[in-house]
Amino acid sequence: MLTISNLHARIEEKEILRGINLEIKPGEVHAIMGPNGSGKSTLASVLAGREDYEVTDGSVTFNGKDLLDLAPEKRAAEGIFLAFQYPVEIPGVTTINFLKTALNEIRKYHGQEPLDAAQFLKRMREKAKLVKIDDALLKRSLNEGFSGGEKKRNEIFQMAMLEPSLGILDETDSGLDIDALRIVAEGVNQLRNENRSFIVVTHYQRLLDYIVPDFVHVLYKGRIVKSGTKELALELEEKGYDWIKNEVDALEVA
């Protein structure tokens, strides 16, 4: 589904990704962990098409298409969804109108008719239940004045509405208390199926207690320096990142 090869990216003059290789198959959940500044969020942003980053080398193929060649909205239409670490507040645009526009743009991309009001509302009610998001909240301006937990739930709600084939969660657990974390994780788990994959970018193990990954990768200095299964996350929780940093730094010196 997704193949990342030797991906290099920088912001201004600073090189942040320095040769990422990753293969994701349908239905898999990959956790990307790593210390602060290792490039986790950069990877998520580059996949979604944020303009601030310049890809200097490597390639990303998504369902056979050159992802890096596509504008962000086309990537979304092709089935990529980024749940933002810091969801943006957009005054004057309600969540409902925003999603109606988004959904119908994606349908248009695939040559489908727009959903009518009734179909849209039905879908909205169904999906709102997944993350226990209140109707009243959806009628308000997008994320404006939402609590941290409400914003993150709204991200997962949007993902449920748009039904992507690859969901990228960028530190979705940050700023969440344990109840909100559970609601968000349960929402994600209900969206898991054999065709839908996830990249879960997180600093901590705790989200992975709920969203159990198939693979865990450790990013450090812009490269994946260790990969394993969910046990690796537990080991990191116990021992921290220093042992990995030391291993990598020792190799670099040698």
Binding site: A48, G49, R50, E51, A71, P72, E73, R75, A76, A77, F81, L82, F84, P87, V88, E89, I90, P91, G92, V93, F98, L99, T101, A102, L103, E105, I106, Y109, S141, Q158, L162
Partner: peptide, 26 residues
């Protein structure tokens, strides 16, 4: 706000439409 435009794009809304929506909202 560029970030808001990117946010909308990342949901499938073309850039031009994202700008228009935000100006209308403004």
């Amino acid at each position: 706000n560029d970030e808001a435009i990117f946010y909308m794009q990342s949901r499938g809304i073309p850039k031009k439409e994202a700008i228009r929506l935000q100006l209308l909202a403004f």
